[in-house]
């Protein structure tokens, strides 16, 4: 079977790929440059900017902080989001329609507004520690993703399965863990990854909530760039890309990437 593909379509496809992959190539090139300023194509090859990340204490510290915040906020969002998504789907008929909208509200509200109101209310009003307000802010930020993704996988779940388990003698709560969760496992994993990546990448909320002594990686990258404009930021970006690729590879291995395309 042969199919004629229109040359314009081929050209467009190539253009889109260049548009998508091009910046990544440029960042990688800049990270490897031996110069002390950002440039492309790289002049000379060197790994010293990668070394530099770990020499600068602020980068070391913010990488750890970012990971801590991502894990904690994703964990909180899952603890709140999974039961919420369950209730929204299980009792869809009994619950008012606006309730599910409430859970996607943080995505609809501009992140800057969210960040500012968190600063005003949580950080300033209640004098919450910076780390705590960051975790809370990020939990709020990623909660909609968790609720949406878990809801999507619950939409395909037949709740009479749960009733079957209960009728066979399994208490409600136990049924949730032994029957329901295993059947939305892939949804939970997808929600975790999506939330984790969103938290790691966040700038708009973090910029309001970071303060003396505590910062996240993206904020540190911004700060570093303002001061130095050297290839360190490019090499940090390459590290982040590497992390994403590693996560995606792990997903591909366990679930298959098509899961996200569904």
């Amino acid at each position: 079977m042969t199919r004629n593909i229109h040359p314009v379509l081929i050209a467009l496809t190539v253009l889109v790929f260049i548009f998508l992959v091009g910046p990544l190539v440029i960042v990688l090139g800049a990270a490897l440059s031996d110069t002390s300023y950002l440039t492309f194509p790289p002049q000379g090859l060197s790994l010293r900017w990668f070394e530099n990340i770990f020499k600068i204490e602020a980068f070391r510290r913010t990488i750890v902080t970012s990971l801590e915040i991502a894990f904690l906020s994703t964990g909180i969002a899952l603890l709140v989001g999974v039961p919420a998504a369950y209730a929204l789907n299980r009792y869809r008929i009994q619950l008012p329609g606006w309730l599910s909208t409430l859970f996607i509200l943080p995505v609809l509200v501009p992140e800057l507004v969210l960040g500012f109101s968190l600063l005003k209310n949580v950080a300033t009003q209640f004098h919450a520690p910076i780390f705590v307000s960051l975790v809370l802010g990020h939990s709020l930020l990623v909660l909609p993703y968790v609720v949406r993704v878990i809801s999507a996988s619950l939409a395909a779940f037949d709740f009479s399965i749960e009733e079957a388990a209960i009728s066979l003698g399994s208490p409600r709560l136990k049924t949730f863990f032994t029957i329901l969760l295993p059947n939305v496992r892939s949804g939970v994993i997808a929600a975790f990854i999506l939330a984790f990546i969103t938290s790691i990448n966040d700038v708009s909320i973090s910029i309001f909530l970071t303060g003396p002594g505590i910062s996240t990686l993206p904020i540190q990258i911004l700060a570093h760039m303002e001061q130095f404009f050297d290839p360190t930021v490019a090499s940090v970006s390459v590290l982040l890309m590497g992390l994403t690729v590693a996560v995606m590879a792990a997903v591909e291995r366990t679930l298959g990437l098509t899961f996200f395309a569904k």
Partner: peptide
């Protein structure tokens, strides 16, 4: 009595088998 203590066998329209 809560449903899990009633000891009643149920057969559902859509089978409701545990897929996993």
């Amino acid at each position: 009595l809560p449903p899990h203590q009633r000891n009643i066998g149920l057969v559902f329209q859509n089978y409701a088998l545990f897929p996993h």
